[in-house]
């Protein structure tokens, strides 16, 4: 039984008569304690998928799905209030820019206390001393030096890496079963990125916390995730286990993404590229979404949208002519 089960998730913008799909029928399973990498270029709908799962898609965006279940609980049946209680508690989220996610007017201690007051255990919620102890232990857990002192720090006094650690401490205050991390290390230096990724991996191990790692950075996913979901223009193109999916991609898009990374082009004078750009939300092709940019496209590709075939958690590919048989 998967911790998260999403079937046919749609997030639409535009008018109801002429909807513009940002997320277009996404199926996604996340097992307990599993790290799933959700990969895609800008406009692929990866962040919107995370926000929809968190219940944070604002009007004019409209979310609908056949099923969104968390821990066997149907999230779509919950009231707004129940949903809000879940978000930040058992499902937590961190974002790309930690400095923008923290409130500049309040100390680290106040913001941690707020999270514990809302999502901590019953004993912590009732007792300010217990909350303070928990806040200190959370900061210690995310490797922040001298935690009691740091409670008095304001966000502007933190470096980017430290601010992201504080965000992670706030996120895990409610002992989440799932952490949605949207580009958590994109704004950080590579050395700090390695530390933060190691921290997230450790938290996952110690708390059996599942993670949805949303990023455009394939090497980060290759080193962190158990399984990868590749999105393009609102749809899932391929899913598969790491490292199998990187060693033998099944979808030409996954292959092309890998080929455009300099690491895959050692000794070549020119990088291989994908011609053209991601189609906009209002001009998606009727056939395969990749067809206009795909070197292997045949006539059927521009007339008929392929299905995501293969199924199961291990490998599924949305292509008429997959590079390997699923």
């Amino acid at each position: 039984m998967a911790l998260v089960e999403i079937r046919g998730l749609h997030v639409d913008f535009g008018s109801p008569a002429r909807p513009l799909p940002a997320v277009d029928g996404v199926d996604l399973d996340i097992g307990a304690g599993e790290i799933v990498g959700l990969v895609g270029e800008s406009g692929s709908g990866k962040s919107m998928t995370g926000l929809a799962l968190m219940g944070l898609v604002d009007a004019p965006g409209r979310v609908r799905a056949e099923r969104v279940a968390f821990d066997d609980q149907d999230l779509l049946a919950l009231s707004m209030r129940e949903r809000a209680k879940l978000a930040g508690g058992r499902i937590a989220m961190i974002f790309q820019d930690p400095q923008a996610s923290l409130d500049p007017c309040y100390t680290v201690g106040f913001q941690l206390d707020e999270a514990i007051r809302l999502h901590g255990s019953a004993a912590e919620r009732a007792n300010p001393t217990a909350r303070r102890e928990r806040a200190v232990s959370l900061l210690r857990e995310v490797d922040i030096p001298d935690p009691p002192q740091r409670l008095h720090a304001y966000p502007h006094q933190l470096s980017g890496g430290m601010a992201q650690r504080v965000m992670i401490a706030i996120a895990v205050a409610g002992r989440p079963r799932l952490l949605i991390a949207d580009e958590p290390t994109t704004a950080l230096d590579v050395t700090v990125q390695a530390q933060v990724l190691a921290l997230l991996a450790r938290l996952r191990r110690e708390h059996d916390m599942a993670m949805l790692l949303i990023t455009h950075d394939l090497p980060v996913v290759a080193e962190t995730a158990d399984r990868v979901v590749v999105m393009y223009a609102g749809q899932v193109m391929e899913t598969g286990d790491v490292p199998a999916i990187f060693e033998a991609p099944g979808h030409p898009y996954t292959q092309a993404l890998l080929d455009s990374i300099p690491e895959h082009n050692e000794g070549r004078a020119r990088l291989r590229t994908i011609a053209g750009v991601v189609p906009g939300i209002d001009d998606r092709p009727t056939g395969c979404l990749l067809a206009p940019r795909c070197e292997r496209a045949e006539p059927i590709c521009s007339s008929e949208r392929p299905l995501l075939r293969g199924g199961g958690a291990h490998r599924a590919v949305r292509c008429h002519f997959p590079l390997l048989k699923p």
Binding site: L158, S159, V192, Q193, A194, A198, L218, A222, E223, E263
Partner: peptide, 27 residues
């Protein structure tokens, strides 16, 4: 050592080395 790679690396290769001077606090 901190730079993620696509190719699988051994644990020693990818461990995060302590930096000569860790990021100071506050700056």
């Amino acid at each position: 050592a901190s730079t993620p790679r696509l190719r699988a690396r051994s644990h020693e290769e990818r461990q995060t080395l302590p930096l000569p001077a860790p990021e100071s606090w506050p700056l």
